[in-house]
């Protein structure tokens, strides 16, 4: 049994790690999406976490776990600082402000040679990230999200997502909850950045741009924001699919584009909506009563 597992991991280890890593990231982004925060800041938080943790292990000689947590905490601190002003912006402005943040981080990474290695990036990062650690973290994330969703916090978060004005009037501290979730999302994204850096031997500024942020958003959206396993399904689907499509890399991009389009167009609730068995919901899906008079 163990031998079979070892053999499997030897052949597909990288892919498994990638799936786990992206699953973790998907739940990080979900934390923001759950309260209707369409964040393009994920790439920026990942970069902060990645460079910070690499600095800890390679320059300071800190233990791996400390380095990853430090990366996550620094990203969370950054999220706290930018979150307070950014969260006051309405929908699209919030999205664009987080986009601008990610670009600021990318450009700083491009130029702060002493810490980030500039445009070349940092090579030869020791490989500390292991599959069992990722499995453990994914399980923790799953439990966290599970417990959160079924608690009264989950109820208020779902309410914020659908109608923040009403939630506020019912006594929910909308700003406080959004900020907490944004910071938590930053923490997870930063941690994933650190884990990814110590998995790939390399970090560079081009790893964390706009596309990285949108990809990360696509995981939970494609899988389904309303389902516990949605983000995981979306992350694994999006990660595995290009590998399974054994075509030229160009054709892979084309097919990925087509598949994502198909999911978005034909499964508006994400892939997990296929599995949902709540006939009542269909009747309930109508324009919600929003907007003050």
């Amino acid at each position: 049994m163990m031998a079979a597992l070892d053999g499997f991991l030897a052949s597909y280890g990288n892919l498994v790690n990638l799936c786990l890593l992206n699953t973790l990231l998907a739940y990080g982004v979900w934390l923001a999406l759950a309260a209707n925060m369409f964040t393009l800041g994920t790439g920026g938080f990942m970069a902060v976490g990645a460079y910070c943790s690499v600095y800890f292990t390679m320059q300071l000689g800190a233990p791996f776990a400390v380095a990853v947590v430090a990366g996550g905490l620094l990203a969370a601190a950054v999220a706290l600082v930018i979150g307070a002003p950014v969260l006051r912006l309405r929908g699209d402005y919030f999205m664009l402000a987080t986009f601008a943040f990610t670009e600021v981080v990318r450009v700083i990474a491009l130029n702060w040679d002493a810490v980030t290695g500039g445009a070349i990036g940092i090579y030869g990062i020791p490989r500390y990230t292991e599959t069992w650690q990722l499995v453990l973290l994914v399980l923790i994330a799953l439990y966290f999200v599970f417990a959160l969703r079924r608690s009264y916090f989950g109820r208020s978060i779902a309410a914020i997502r659908q109608d923040d004005v009403m939630s506020e009037a019912m006594g929910v501290n909308v700003f406080g909850q959004r900020l907490s979730l944004f910071v938590a999302s930053g923490f997870v994204s930063g941690g994933v950045g650190g884990l990814a850096a110590h998995l790939n031997f390399f970090v560079g500024p081009s790893d964390f741009g706009l596309l990285r942020s949108v990809d990360a958003l696509a995981y939970p959206i494609l899988g389904g924001v309303n389902a516990l396993l949605g983000p995981m399904v979306g992350a694994i689907f999006t990660t595995l699919l290009p590998e399974l499509l054994r075509f030229s890399s160009q054709w892979r991009e084309i097919l990925m584009g087509l598949l994502i389009l198909a999911v978005v167009l034909f499964l508006p609730g994400g892939a997990m909506s296929l599995l949902r068995w709540r006939p009542r919901k269909a009747a309930a899906r109508r324009p919600s009563t929003q907007g003050a008079e």
Partner: peptide, 22 residues
Amino acid sequence: FQNIRLLASETTLDNVLLGAHR
């Protein structure tokens, strides 16, 4: 609210429970 602001896809009880949040 004049224009009724409920969470359409949630059950009656879950909607009311939101009021108990505080």
